[in-house]
Design a protein around this nucleic acid. Structure first.
Length: 853
RNA sequence: GCGAAAGUGGCGGAAUUGGUAGACGCGCUAGACUUAGGAUCUAGUCCCGCAAGGGGUGGGGGUUCGAGUCCCCCCUUUCGCACCA
């Protein structure tokens, strides 16, 4: 305690009036918060019930341990904790676990920098972070903690891989992949952001051709898409993002015979507009298309090869720029148009993507803007085959493509057909002729999971010269990641290849010399099933017990940032569906309700980062104010889904609120009348006390609404502030009348319960001081008295033509007629009317009166 | 370029969903208590105006007795997708 405070206390001794000032100054949450954390632990409040009768599975996205907990974690886990504690108070059997997403590149990078093992670095960060979370008093059941880099976890991650392999959902393929030159490893499509690595936004990804493991998530594209309709408690934006990420489009594949090559050779294109087939005047291959080289004639070879080389050398960003000129080269070859039999020139251009559809398209310049631009540039024929309503388009004079609807023309069997109908008609025709078929195409690609890095879960596969690729037998799991690997500096191939004891093995099938797959898995595999491991974290035999899963799933509430919309949140839906199909789960969708919290920025709205030096450390806040004050501040500053600009001044306001509330309640409990205070008798109350009581019940209701709905606790906390302001306005507790006093007593008990999810330590302390015997979380959620919410009198605005002129005070129960009479009888209204009759009187009962004059 | 969301005091944000715009908090102003205060308490604080009154939710139009809220056009910001045939 400082000298200043000491002096103040001394001065206060002579003056009763200074007493509460004194109390508030000496109020320090740090003196009681640790006690309650211990108490909760002793009472087993955070422990998960064995056999839930009304379960609530509360989950927050687990953390990557990269040092200590930061403000973003603090916010995420606080919001989750509020919901978990509330559900507990409602009497639910709550499962609220936590774990660590502990594999990953940052551990390696930090380890390289500091010269220690990634495992050591990770575990020490976990220790630090766990201790911070425990200090924060988040109500996790730590008995269920999981760590993805521990063998007891990744054993089952490997089991998951083998399950997918067994079901034909994991396969190996030579593919052109995204390569991050900094991390020296491949990236999944989901981790390429704007042509750059998600972790290095300024580093363009490169293309490499490698043999890699993929998960066949595209097999689930339809289900992942269709089930989105069930996710009515997910943020709309996330559902939309997933929908467009999956990118289903319906169309047709059409086969073109290739001239001059073997009869059996065909070139297949994908189109969503098979109805415009008669307008296809050229074909375009992506530079990387497998047929490009074969289709190039000798006279064109030099030009095509130069073009392909140039296209390959472009960065992803350059390739993706949709505004740049569409250029290309003629291959020299022609294909036979499947319905007109015409010879169609085949071009090579990089506006066609190798990775989508068949990597080749039919060019319909009249009805596709891209093809149009290309055709104009190289003087290719533009043939109109759809005439829009009332138009008379001519290919020779067109200045942009006409992609819309209309009637088919110059398409002999279908002339006159309207476009929407033309599409299925043409598909049927193509199928009859054997030159095409209906096809549904997805933007979603298979999930590339191999990583050429050390710190990840080893892929449990063995390569044998005799037997090929052989899965590691289940009883040999886990395939342990070798410890103490000296050289894990990324080199472009997995460092595990150099670890003999690991790499060289016997083939499980033939016993001959073989070697392990040296790649490790994308860490998003680890997090695709962690929600399941929490159900049965100590199971050594199986990833989890089916019965436990049936008890607890699905996750009732999942909270985390929106940056995972098309990554993690898609992968873990996929895993859940695979496990469902394999008979392990009853559910297809892992999460009922999803919430994205906003980010925490500095006071200027900038991202907090070490390099900017604007990082606020939660630990420092706790050291000064304890946990509950920063926690309330975090909840108060903005709606939970919005960004927070963290400012220290704002905390001052919250601290004042807490201190005032504390003093008010302390004085109430200290009052001799407190112990004997009976029920509130509403009829006996003064108007002020009644208003205070109304605000009390209103605040509780408001909190309830936030908890059940948008999680916007800023308004709930504001309501408690209003209540407190109203009660303080009546006077110090000692000055309250005997009739009014029970309102204060009620306020103490009700507030400590209703604020318990928001400020658990403070509430528990007040609750006990107020006479609570057991934990406030056992005491349960308070019940709002609807009668207490009613007002005796409301202010009714009287408007003239919608403009507010006079305010009346009336009973909220006043009828239409009564309100009209009261309004017209008012002197001020009479003055304004000045003898006129209002043309019309609009009365909204309980709300307002509007006079039209 | 396409899609979505959002623009409210000096600042963070409210507004019971078409009914008193600016709750609550920060900041600011004045006063009180103080040897002192970056503590505490009291009062005030959207703008113009001494006042009566007038204006006001990015801009412009519209619907309505009444619009921050609904409709149309424009501007700005943020986010997502970005040649997906």
């Amino acid at each position: 305690m400082s000298n200043d405070q000491q002096q103040n206390q001394d001065l206060g001794q002579d003056h009763d009036q200074d007493q509460d000032q004194d109390d508030s100054r000496s109020f320090d949450p740090r003196t009681f918060e640790p006690k309650w954390r211990e108490y909760w632990h002793e009472q087993g409040l955070d422990r998960t019930p064995e056999n839930p009768s009304n379960k609530f599975y509360m989950l927050e996205m687990f953390a990557y341990p990269s040092g200590d907990i930061h403000m973003g974690h603090f916010r995420n886990y606080t919001i989750g904790d509020v919901v978990a504690r509330y559900q507990k108070m409602l009497g639910k059997d709550v499962l609220h676990p936590f774990g660590w997403d502990a594999f990953g590149l940052p551990a390696e990078n930090a380890a390289i920098k500091h010269g220690i093992q990634p495992g050591e670095w990770t575990l020490s960060n976990i220790e630090k972070s766990r201790s911070s979370l425990q200090q924060m008093g988040i109500s996790y059941d730590w008995d269920r903690e999981l760590v993805t880099c521990r063998e007891d976890y990744y054993k089952h991650t490997q089991w998951m891989f083998l399950l997918l392999y067994e079901r034909g959902l994991a396969y190996r393929r030579n593919a052109e992949v995204n390569w991050c030159p900094i991390d020296q490893t491949v990236l999944a499509n989901e981790h390429v952001v704007g042509g750059c690595c998600w972790r290095h936004p300024d580093t363009p990804v490169e293309k490499r051709t490698l043999e890699q493991w993929f998960f066949r998530i595209t097999d689930y594209a339809d289900r992942l898409l269709d089930n989105l309709d069930q996710l009515d408690q997910w943020p709309e934006g996330t559902v939309k993002q997933q929908r467009s990420w999956i990118g289903r489009s319906e169309g047709a594949e059409i086969d073109y015979r290739l001239e001059g090559l073997a009869e059996s050779d065909t070139l297949t294109v994908f189109t969503t507009r098979p109805d415009t087939l008669w307008g296809a005047t050229f074909l375009v291959l992506a530079p990387e298309h497998p047929l490009t080289a074969r289709l190039t004639t000798d006279s064109q070879r030099e030009e095509v090869e130069a073009y392909v080389a140039q296209a390959r050398s472009k960065t992803e960003i350059e390739r993706m720029d949709a505004t740049r000129d569409k250029d290309g080269v003629f291959s020299g070859s022609y294909a036979k148009h499947p319905v007109t039999g015409e010879a169609v020139p085949i071009w090579v251009a990089d506006y066609v993507l190798a990775g989508y559809g068949t990597g080749s398209i039919m060019g319909v310049p009249a009805h596709d803007q891209r093809d149009f631009e290309f055709a104009r540039k190289y003087d290719l024929e533009v043939r109109v085959v759809v005439q829009p309503e009332g138009a008379r388009l001519d290919g020779a004079t067109l200045d942009e493509a006409a992609p819309g609807t209309g009637k088919l023309v110059a398409s002999p069997p279908f002339d006159g057909t309207e476009v929407p109908q033309g599409i299925p008609d043409v598909i049927r025709y193509l199928e009859e002729q054997g030159v095409g078929r209906g096809k549904i195409q997805y933007r979603l690609r298979d999930w590339l999971i191999s990583r050429q890095r050390y710190w990840g879960c080893p892929i449990p596969m063995i390569h044998c010269d005799q037997c090929g690729v052989v899965p590691v037998p289940l009883d040999q799991l886990p395939v342990e990641l070798p410890k103490n690997v000296e050289n894990f500096v990324p080199s472009g191939r997995s460092p595990l290849e150099d670890v003999k004891e690991f790499f060289e093995v016997e083939c499980p099938q033939c016993g001959g010399a073989a070697h392990r797959d040296a790649d490790t898995m994308d860490t998003f595999v680890d997090s695709s099933w962690y929600h399941l491991r929490f159900l049965d974290p100590h199971n050594t035999e199986e990833p989890f017990d089916r019965a436990e899963a049936a008890k607890w799933l699905p996750v009732d509430y999942y909270i985390g940032g929106d940056e995972h919309a098309t990554g993690h949140l898609l992968y873990f839906r996929f895993f859940t569906q695979v496990l469902h199909d394999a008979g392990w789960l009853d559910i297809e969708e892992p999460v009922v309700r999803l919430f994205h919290h906003g980010m925490v920025m500095d006071d200027k709205g900038e991202v907090m980062s070490k390099s900017k030096g604007n990082v606020v450390a939660p630990a420092e806040l706790f050291a000064r104010d304890g946990v509950d004050i920063p926690r309330l501040a975090m909840l108060f500053f903005a709606p939970s889904a919005d960004e927070i600009l963290w400012n220290e001044k704002g905390i001052d306001g919250v601290r004042r609120f807490v201190q005032r509330l504390w003093s008010l309640f302390e004085e109430t409990v200290a009052d001799a009348r407190y112990a004997a205070a009976g029920e509130v008798r509403p009829d006996a109350l003064s108007a002020e006390a009644k208003e205070g009581r109304r605000l009390l019940h209103w605040a509780v209701e408001r909190t309830e609404t936030s908890l059940e709905g948008d999680l916007n606790f800023n308004t709930a906390i504001a309501a408690f502030m209003e209540m407190m302001n109203a009660l303080r306005k009546v006077g110090a507790p000692a000055t309250w009348s005997d009739d009014d006093f029970p309102v204060l007593a009620e306020a103490v008990k009700m507030t400590s319960r209703a604020m318990a999810p928001l400020a658990p330590h403070l509430s528990e302390e007040i609750w006990h001081r107020a006479g609570g015997a057991e934990s406030v979380f056992i005491a349960g959620w308070p019940t709002v008295d609807p009668e207490a919410l009613k007002r005796d009198e409301v202010e009714i605005p009287v408007q003239f033509n919608g403009k507010l002129r006079v305010r009346l005070h009336l009973s909220p129960k006043a009828t239409r007629e009564e309100m009209e009479i009261a309004a017209l009888a008012d002197v001020r209204v009479q003055e304004i009317l000045d003898g006129q009759e209002p043309k019309r009187v609009i009365v909204v009962p309980g709300r307002l009166v509007n006079l039209v004059v």
